[in-house]
Design a protein around this nucleic acid. Structure first.
Ligand SMILES: [Mn+2]
Ligand SMILES: [Mn+2]
Ligand SMILES: [Zn+2]
Ligand SMILES: [Zn+2]
Lengths: 126, 126
DNA sequence: TTATATTTGCAACTTAGTTGCATTAAAATT
DNA sequence: AATTTTAATGCAACTAAGTTGCAAATATAA
């Protein structure tokens, strides 16, 4: 079940995601908003925003949880099946607005897939 | 640095990987060998076998660490750049012996990538 | 057999994420 | 505006995968 009330924490988190277009880890959000909100609150609000189709989540390096804005999702329809890129130098993570062609796998039913590409970002590569 | 001595724990772990061709999670190995070895030992031997190019590791559902046998790797050359399939019903994880065509990403340098496909395996799909 | 260096077990630790519950605060109702 | 209702919050305690330091055990070389 998603967000019902427009609280301070909801506004603060949405604000964080409006400041940059990159993905943000739960860990970073907890650090940034530490003085204002409890980590439990942050985890719970993120979870609800994902239910609502406002954010989507995925696992980055070391299994850490990351969140990024959705483009055309709603609570009914989540379609964030794009790959993500994580810079091994600066740690930045971005959504890649491209579609991945999955390999053919006989006798299995594919439900979801996640592709994480790692390397050097534009800034760190130059 | 890799394996130097052929100890009981090394043999036991290699034996586990020879019993099945599927990947095995560190968690499962710790459970299976709980009566014989300490979990610290298991983590350390797995790490060394990976260094030696005998096993490769990757993260599955929920960021859990999985290991599987390498095919043609050595301590110098690791090439396990294949995708993995995890069954959401029975939990089984397999290496997929196919190559993935990564999308073109301008101005970035790709170093590694990991593709995890989830769904129903042959057994659970039928 | 002895010496040396690697491996092991254990306990304590780290850290991301979760849970239960009493309190607080939105928002709906009167 | 005051009251009621119910969702959201803070806090502390917990969970669980994985790590670390160190003394004791064991494989291998001498
Ligand atoms: Mn994304
Ligand atoms: Mn594999
Ligand atoms: Zn970078
Ligand atoms: Zn299955």
């Amino acid at each position: 079940m998603g967000i019902i009330r427009k609280t301070k924490s909801v506004e603060a988190l949405l604000n964080e995601f409006n400041k940059s277009s990159s993905a943000i880890s739960a860990k970073k959000l907890i650090q940034s908003l530490d003085s204002k909100f409890n980590k439990t609150t942050i985890y719970r609000v993120l979870d609800k925003l994902e239910d609502d189709g406002v954010l989507h989540s995925f696992l980055g390096k070391n299994g850490l949880k990351w969140y990024a804005k959705c483009n055309d999702c709603s609570s009914n329809k989540h379609r964030d099946l794009h790959p993500h890129f994580q810079c091994l130098d600066c740690g930045k993570v971005d959504c890649l607005a491209v579609s991945v062609s999955l390999p053919k796998i006989p006798n299995r039913k594919i439900e979801v897939s996640q592709l994480l590409i790692q390397g050097k970002c534009e800034t760190c590569f130059a």
